[in-house]
């Protein structure tokens, strides 16, 4: 395992937190109540905090003395390794909740295993993040039940969001070449092992939420290889606007 393998592996974890944090950041001030605005912002802040820890560690590993901001803002689209689900838009509150819940359950299972990593840095970040993500999952799971088993209208909207986002869940368990190498070295997690637990848990909650489990012959994939949906370009255009317009400055 090379440092580069490890860096790429960290991207595949940290970029998820960055892009989802960025998406949630769009919502602040536009949610259904002040209380939900505050809650979702807390989740965004947790995710961005995690991102910073991972990227700072990448900085230590890199030969070029990268800063967390170099890593966050100066890569090209193909170099971001986040899964496709986190870049999906805030279509409505049901999509926000479904996206969050589908990701949170995975994120929780991943961190649980990452806490056992042979790499002390990853272990430490995972331990800290674990508590945060336990709360995220509780929040999104509660809301998924509320919307699924709320009114007729909310049920339909929730079902729609689940149907649309379901196709992005399988990718959570894909392993690219770097993932495999790092997992084999005992530093990373074998995501394929999480899959069964994941679907058991998600399907049980969907059932409680009176949401039908979608069946789809095909799933979407690509993010882990840097091939993203069209949304990603706009996310980065926004996020990197300052860095690209005013290169090499301190803010």
């Amino acid at each position: 395992m090379t440092n580069e393998n490890l860096i790429q592996y960290i991207y595949s974890i940290a970029d998820n937190s960055l892009i989802l944090g960025q998406r949630l950041g769009e919502l602040c001030g536009h949610g259904p109540t002040l209380e939900t605005d505050i809650a979702l912002t807390n989740i965004a802040l947790d995710l961005l905090g995690q991102t910073r820890s991972y990227y700072q560690y990448v900085g230590e590993l890199s030969k070029e003395d990268l800063t967390e901001d170099d890593v966050a803002f100066l890569r090209n689209e193909r170099e971001y390794k986040n899964v496709l689900i986190v870049e999906q838009p805030n279509t409505d509150f049901a999509y926000v909740i479904a996206r969050q819940y589908f990701f949170d359950v995975y994120h929780f299972l991943l961190l649980e295993k990452l806490m056992e990593s042979k790499n002390v840095n990853l272990q430490a970040i995972a331990k800290k993040s674990m508590k945060e993500v336990a709360y995220h999952k509780r929040f999104s799971g509660d809301w998924l039940k509320r919307l699924g088993d709320g009114t007729e209208e909310s049920h339909q909207k929730m079902q729609q969001a689940v149907n649309d986002l379901w196709v992005y869940t399988d990718e959570l368990f894909h392993m690219n070449e770097d993932d495999k190498v790092v997992a084999k070295a005992g530093f990373g997690v074998d995501n394929t092992e999480l899959k069964e637990t994941y679907y058991n848990e998600v399907e049980a909650l969907l059932k409680k939420a009176t949401i039908e489990i979608p069946s789809t012959p095909y799933f979407q994939k690509g993010g882990k290889k840097g091939i993203h949906t069209e949304h990603m370009g706009y996310i980065l255009a926004d996020m990197q606007y300052m860095q690209r317009t005013f290169p090499d400055m301190k803010w």
């Binding site: 505050i38 807390n42 509320r146």
Partner: peptide, 20 residues
């Protein structure tokens, strides 16, 4: 004080609003 639809939500909201 704050708004919530049920006790569970009130607890979560309280955590987010008053213990940041």
């Amino acid at each position: 004080s704050l708004r919530a639809a049920d006790a569970e939500m009130a607890m979560n909201n309280a955590r987010d609003v008053y213990t940041r």
